[in-house]
Nucleic acid binder design. Structure first.
Length: 785
DNA sequence: GGCCAGTGTCTTTTT
DNA sequence: GACACTGGCC
């Protein structure tokens, strides 16, 4: 996603001037200039939100090159692909054609391991296992160890292994430390499973995400000559978001910055939000101790947000004890106060957002892409998605199942993986019976045991299946045919990844299973496979002769969920608070400011106050994404795990003072009575009558009077927006499964309101609950999707 | 071996 | 509410 650069005096330059000369730093503030002009030696840039950090880094790179540094000696490392892409394109704008390497940690390590991985037992064509693959391996390990998978869920064991790896504990070290442990059963299981897991990865010639880093750490530690070479090769190392580095990443960065200590790290301890993934906020806090000659530059002027937003965020974050105090200042013009809106339930919360956004766009104040909706957990996006669908608001979601993780896409990719790396056991197991070829559990159990006993890869074993004494004829035929198909694909030369993928589909008949089907799901699957093909074609086009299967697979396995966000297309963006890091939007909504969500219940269970501080930082990150307007919401009632529960306001709300806005219904009924399920909720149309009697809402934040009601806010939009329950007889609607239809009748009230629709298909009539059905009005609004 | 329906179980955040 | 796993049936 493009990061919009705020308009501000210090940073503007005349369009007529063209690009600034990178040596000319007149357009920078004093501290920005200090950071840009610093050349040799370690440098710590403490950059508050919206302080022009990316701009400073890219300008600094440009300046280094301008002063004679070879671009190949510069390595810039980010956490996400999106950030890397953004930085690379900005560097390219300043230095067209220069080949500065901007990479994520994982990609950097992957490249290194492709070249030098033999040292840790990896062939250059190793596979990268994602979390699903990882779980598959662990499941097999646990079965082999006779460990009850119910009591020790593979995902939990996997998390423990991942934690260990993030703390640089190898399997051997872990085993030694915990194999005798009587106290903790899980650790004892991991002590056995972790070494086995690593063995299986090696047999598959594969690594998991953590291994990418850990193997590189091992390599650098065991091979001083290699470390020295790389240190010399990358004389200038820049690391973004240093506050989020874990121990492994810290070691890598340091190993590359011993002989030439031109290490520049940027970050903000207040934005450290990956502690759960092993990030050590201490890494940035102790930088000056690690590098005593370090220069320190603070970027504290904010060019992004209004003073109101900044002050609110600052009030919040100042409640953290474990931090380096920092001031946030801005010259930006005043804006509106930060609002807190309290709604009756999560559905209403979603509708309020939809109505608000639509209203702003229709008044011409904003474009769709100005808005972002942020939440703590992905599950919360559903309600918003549904409401936006009903209100016909175009949106994109940065979450849920990333494209490359959908089952059918993973299946096709598993074929490619197996072709690339025939030892990849997870890929084999995934596709050997997909589409169904009559190869079941029993057959596979025999085959894999046999392969392990004889040192075959699974694919080799399948090819030799006829030699196996116990396999049924039918199973043997299927296995041999499968192995032959794959082997032929391995041996054929293809011109590009797209051609190979097409051949895979043609030879395996994979897509045929849903061809000709009319089911919505099957069509979606076909479309996804088609989209994957498009991705391969784009990849071929982009890389030309350099387009290799290797590179394509690496891209797909390291692709992140926010990578595909697009701010050009004119859509509202829905994303988690974590995914929001590094982005900015004119208008930000943060929903569900409730106990157990923000802060998340997991952070409250343990008694570690630092976990709570991380939650506070997370909210801080979200708030400081907002440029002009920030709205926080909470609902009395929220559906969690299918149950509707009364919520408790987030304790953070008392730490700053948003302007309180309550939903009219709730004000009228009173908070104390919300629990009464039998209370019939009035229809939307009657909401206005409560406005006058509305009494101030519960004042979590210190007694501010309620100034506006949500009903008033909704009021102006009532006419232009079709409320979801507003189905009228004769209206045209669309149902995702049944297609177009006409509303025949509307019955019942409130939650029990039903709509009967006659579909185009003659004699087909269905009745739906208005609140829940996926019906969309058709042809009423000019805007939208 | 494949398919279906029913049941039990978990859900933070991500490369 | 979603998914993984189970058990029963063809």
């Amino acid at each position: 996603m493009q990061i919009r650069w705020p308009r501000c005096r210090a940073l503007t330059y005349d369009a007529g001037m063209g690009l600034p000369n990178e040596s000319n730093t007149d357009d920078l503030t004093l501290s920005q200039r200090q950071a840009v002009e610093h050349k040799e030696g370690p440098l710590l840039i403490l950059a508050g939100p919206g302080s022009g950090k990316t701009r400073v880094i890219t300008r600094r790179i440009a300046r280094l090159v301008d002063s004679g540094v070879d671009p190949r000696e510069i390595l810039a490392i980010t956490f996400t692909n999106k950030a890397a892409k953004e930085m690379a394109s900005r560097v390219d704008r300043l230095l067209p054609g220069s080949r500065v390497w901007v990479s994520t940690f994982h990609r950097f390590c992957s490249r290194l391991l492709r070249m030098r991985g033999q040292a840790v037992g990896l062939q250059p064509n190793f596979s990268i296992f994602d979390t699903q693959d990882q779980r598959g391996v662990i499941k097999r390990v646990l079965t082999g160890l006779n460990v009850d998978a119910v009591h020790y869920p593979p995902a939990k064991i996997g998390a423990l292994i991942s934690n260990a790896k993030n703390n640089l504990q190898t399997a051997e070290a872990y085993r030694r430390r915990f194999s005798e442990s009587v106290g903790n059963h899980a650790q004892a299981v991991v002590a056995k499973a972790y070494p086995e897991y690593q063995k299986l990865l090696l047999v598959s010639n594969a690594v998991d995400f953590d291994d990418l880093l850990l193997h590189v750490v091992t390599m650098l530690a065991e091979n001083p000559e290699l470390r020295r070479q790389l240190d010399e090769r990358y004389r200038y190392v820049l690391v973004d978001e240093y506050q989020d580095t874990n121990l492994a990443q810290y070691q890598i960065v340091n190993a590359l910055s011993q002989d030439s200590q031109n290490l520049c790290v940027t970050g903000d301890p207040d934005q450290s939000i990956y502690g759960w993934r092993g990030a050590k906020i201490d890494n940035i806090l102790r930088f000056e101790a690690d590098y005593p000659q370090a220069a320190v530059v603070r970027l504290e002027e904010n060019f992004r947000s209004t003073p109101q937003i900044l002050e609110t965020a600052d009030n919040l974050i100042s409640h953290n004890v474990y931090r380096k105090a920092k001031t946030l200042i801005t010259d930006n013009a005043d804006g509106d106060p930060v609002e807190l809106r309290t709604l009756r339930d999560s559905q209403r919360e979603a509708e309020m957002l939809a109505a608000d956004i639509r209203d702003c766009v229709e008044r011409g104040e904003n474009k769709w892409s100005d808005f972002a909706v942020m939440y703590r957990v992905n599950a919360l996006s559903r309600e918003i998605e549904r409401a936006f669908g009903r209100f016909r608001i175009p949106f994109q979601v940065a979450a849920g199942l990333a494209f490359y993780e959908r089952a059918e896409v993973k299946d096709v990719l598993a074929h490619l993986r197996l072709i690339h790396n025939p030892h990849d056991q997870e890929a084999f197991l995934r596709i050997v019976n997909r589409p169904a070829r009559g190869i079941g559990k029993t057959t596979l159990k025999r085959l894999t045991a046999w392969a392990a006993a004889n040192g075959f890869s699974f694919l080799e074993a399948a090819a030799q299946a006829a030699e196996h004494p116990q396999l049924t004829k039918r199973a043997v035929n299927s296995l041999v045919a499968f192995a032959e198909t794959m082997n032929e694909l391995v041996q054929t030369q293809f011109d590009g990844v797209a051609e190979l993928t097409e051949a895979v589909l043609a030879r395996t008949g994979y897509a045929e299973q849903w061809r000709g089907s009319t089911g919505e799901q099957d069509l979606q699957r076909l479309a996804n496979v088609e989209e994957l093909l498009t991705a391969t074609r784009q990849f071929d086009d982009q890389w030309g002769d350099e387009s290799t299967l290797d590179a394509f697979l690496e891209t797909t396995s390291l692709a992140g969920e926010t990578d595909n966000l697009d701010d050009e297309r004119g859509q509202v963006t829905l994303l988690t608070l974590h995914a929001a890091k590094g982005l900015e939007f004119p208008v930000v909504f943060i929903i569900a400011l409730e106990q157990n969500l923000i802060p998340h219940e997991r952070s409250l269970k343990g008694d570690d106050p630092r976990e709570l501080e991380e939650e506070r930082r997370l909210l801080f990150v979200g708030m400081t994404r907002a440029m002009r307007r920030l709205v926080l919401t909470r609902a009395h009632r929220r559906d969690v795990r299918g149950k509707s529960l009364i919520s408790i306001p987030s304790p953070f709300l008392v730490e700053f003072s948003p302007q309180q806005v309550a939903d009219a219904d709730d004000a009228a009924f009173g908070w104390d009575r919300v629990e009464n399920e039998s209370q019939e909720v009035p229809d939307d149309e009657s909401a206005e009558q409560f406005v006058e009697t509305a009494r101030p809402a519960v004042n979590e934040a210190g007694g501010r009077p309620m100034l506006t009601t949500a009903a008033e806010l909704l009021n102006g939009t009532r006419r232009s927006v079709e409320m979801p329950v507003g189905f009228t007889v004769g209206m045209s609607v669309r149902h995702p499964r049944y297609g177009l239809g006409t509303v025949m009748s509307v019955d019942g009230f409130s939650k029990r309101r039903t709509v009967t629709v006659a579909f185009e298909d003659p004699d087909h009539q269905e009745t739906f609950v208005a609140d829940k059905c996926p019906l969309q009005p058709v042809g009423l609004s000019k805007g939208g999707g």
